[in-house]
Simulated assay, not measured.
Amino acid sequence: MKKTVFMISLVAGMLLTSCASKKELQACQEDNKALQANYQDTKEQLAAANTRVASLQEQLAAVQKTNETLQNSLDKSLTNASQNNISIEKLVDQINESNQYIRHLVEVKSKSDSLNMVLTNNLTRSLSKEELKEVDVQVLKGVVYISLADNMLYESGTYKINKRAAETLSKIAKIIKDYKDYDVLVEGNTDDVPISRENIRNNWDLSCLRASSVVQALQNDYGVDPKRLTAGGRGEYNPLQPNTSEVGKMRNRRTQIIITPKLDEFMDLIGQAPEEKK
């Protein structure tokens, strides 16, 4: 009987123990599930945090790079500004010097223009109305141009000075002699009609020979200093008008007496520029 009671008690105890173990196991399993869920949440939060940190690091690097670029740009700007201040000061000095030089050139040009206008007025007053029809006097860019038609100067188709030209050349020579500080270039020009005669091969020859004839007349007949004279020819290559009409050809057949200030004296005047600052 006692043995039976003992067996019953042992079985009951084992059953009770088994029931307790199942409850504990079930409780442990539930705790484990909760821990697993917490672990997964924590892992996801950590990954998100790492991503955020990486993004912030990239932003920080970009800001640092931008800041470095801005700093370099600022340093460069300050350097340029410093250099520009020096350059601007120098530029202002150069502008002031240039302005002085320009004023000087204007004074020289005004003086030259005034003399040329006096020369031109004196010449035109000395010519008769008939002569003025065949003599054109102009001042262009500070130079006096006296243009004479070929039919009043030369015998037809030649480079010989005719008698009709003597009075006009004498008046021009007088003006040239009165203005001793001027040089004289005599320039022959032709139309484009070919010419071929004894000792005249083409229009180059004709224009040069005609200019030479006028120079020698000024020297030999009217006493102009030959050191002031230059003869040159431009053939048919400096026309005033197209050679398509008789009027155009007539205008192009001319001899120009070009009166200019002596080059060396004019350059001396120009050379008197303001002294450079040292």
Rank of each mutant, 00 (worst) to 15 (best):
R125Y: 13
D264W: 14
T42Y: 15
M250E: 12
C208G: 00
S114D: 12
A273I: 09
T79W: 12
Q241I: 09
A12Q: 01
A211P: 01
D136L: 14
A54C: 15
S87Y: 09
L169T: 14
E58I: 04
T244N: 13
S128M: 07
P226M: 02
E68N: 02
E130R: 04
I176R: 00
N80F: 09
S245K: 08
A217M: 06
L169S: 14
S212G: 02
H104N: 13
N99M: 15
I200E: 05
I257W: 09
N116C: 10
N220Y: 00
D75N: 01
E131T: 05
T124M: 13
N252A: 03
S98G: 15
A34K: 11
K109A: 12
E44L: 10
Y154M: 02
K278L: 01
G233K: 06
L123Q: 00
L132F: 13
V108G: 04
Q57N: 15
L153G: 03
E134C: 04
N162Y: 03
V106K: 12
D183T: 11
L10I: 12
V135M: 12
K33L: 02
P261A: 15
I8F: 01
P274M: 05
N99T: 14
T120L: 10
R197L: 09
T42D: 07
L123S: 07
I257M: 03
L115P: 10
I161L: 01
N80T: 11
E265L: 15
S77I: 07
A12D: 04
Q36W: 11
G232P: 00
V92A: 02
K65C: 00
N151S: 14
S128G: 15
E167C: 10
D192N: 05
N72G: 09
V108T: 08
G223Q: 09
R251D: 02
S213C: 14
R125T: 08
R201H: 05
I200F: 01
Q57G: 04
R228A: 10
I257Y: 11
P194A: 13
K180M: 06
L206Q: 05
A211D: 00
N84C: 02
W204N: 12
L206F: 10
L105T: 07
A165E: 02
D192F: 06
R254G: 00
M250R: 14
L127N: 11
